[in-house]
């Protein structure tokens, strides 16, 4: 199959395929970060995670329309405003959901799963009623269009680079929050020993709520970033949920580095296999390998040693 191409062309194909894998990697990282906080640190299964991302995407859509209508001069910068709004909107919804639902179910993780699935159905229908059943796309600012020619043969799309930069930025932000801030220290303390954390004066209830809210907010930012590379529909969130959970579980719940490593390996495996096989078979094989590895090593790639 390679005989018809010259070496230079082959190199270009692999470089571009690798780049496509890197974009997929960024997408996985963005999807999984919020979940790594919620599932990894709190052990809560949030099946509505995809819908929180879609909320961020719709907020971005609204903000872009607002800018196009009232502030066309600043349109090229709207995305940064949209991201902040996406974080706030998803985060606030997350705080509310934690208060109304999740906090009553901490002792029943399987029931949380069902309840959040119900929430995801309600959110989907709400999006459909408000924004219509059709997919909406945002208009991308001019500077993000087109592609960057690296050599004669290799071109990389600018919006792909932008999503990658965002993924790195948000990962760093989450890292700093988790490991350098007061909140992060409290979350990790509660994860290690809830009773002792409460005894030394940490407000565990409020920290839980904040953690859930921040996780949802990060999901919203991820959704906002996705509008740069694709359109948004009311049921799009459901497509992500299996991938996202597998990335987090495969990486080892509770380990941020594990999440990133697993996002990298899954995305590269998938995009490399896509070159040789059809898209659906590549997906099936990747998922099977991940599930197979999880059966052999249920704790995931990187596991934290915790007392249960």
């Amino acid at each position: 199959m390679f005989a018809d191409y010259s070496m230079a062309e082959l190199g270009a194909i692999f470089a571009m395929q690798g780049f496509a894998g890197l974009i997929l990697f960024s997408v996985f990282v963005l999807m999984a970060l919020g979940l790594a906080i919620i599932f990894g640190q709190m052990g809560v299964i949030n099946m509505a995670h995809g819908e929180f991302m879609i909320l961020g995407a719709y907020v971005t859509y609204l903000v872009s329309n607002l800018f196009a209508e009232y502030m066309p001069a600043l349109f090229s910068m709207y995305f940064f405003v949209a991201m902040i709004f996406a974080f706030i909107a998803s985060g606030l919804l997350g705080l509310f959901v934690e208060w109304a639902m999740i906090r009553h179910l901490y002792k029943r993780p399987l029931d949380t799963l069902l309840a959040t699935w119900g929430l995801s159905l309600i959110l989907q229908q709400t999006y459909r009623s408000v924004f219509g059943a059709r997919e909406v796309g945002v208009s991308i600012p001019d500077w993000m269009m087109g592609s960057l020619p690296l050599t004669d043969l290799i071109e990389v799309p600018i919006n792909g680079i932008f999503v990658m930069v965002l993924a790195v930025g948000i990962s760093l932000a989450v890292y700093i929050m988790m490991f350098r801030s007061r909140w992060g220290k409290q979350v990790r303390a509660i994860n290690q020993n809830r009773v002792m954390a409460g005894a030394v004066g940490i407000n565990t209830e409020w920290t839980d709520r904040l953690t859930f809210g921040i996780g949802c907010g990060v999901a919203g930012v991820a959704g906002s970033a996705f509008t740069m590379i694709g359109s948004t529909g009311p049921t799009a969130g459901q497509l992500y949920i299996v991938d996202t959970f597998l990335v987090v579980v495969f990486g080892g719940a509770g380990s941020l580095l594990g999440t990133i490593a697993s996002a990298f390996s899954i995305s590269q495996a998938q995009s490399i296999m896509e070159f040789f096989l059809s898209g659906s078979m590549a997906k099936v094989l990747t998922l099977l390998v991940v599930v197979g590895i999880l059966m052999i090593r249920p704790q995931g790639l990187f596991s934290l040693k915790l007392r249960k």
């Binding site: 299964i45 799963l113 959970f245 579980v249 659906s280 078979m281 998922l287 599930v291 059966m295 249920p298």
Partner: peptide, 24 residues
């Protein structure tokens, strides 16, 4: 000794795999 939520997630992944396989 995989159980609880992990079992739920992995069986869900099987449901996804099966659908993709049948459609593909």
């Amino acid at each position: 000794r995989v159980g609880g939520v992990y079992f739920a997630i992995i069986t869900q992944a099987f449901a996804a795999i099966m659908t993709i396989l049948i459609i593909g």
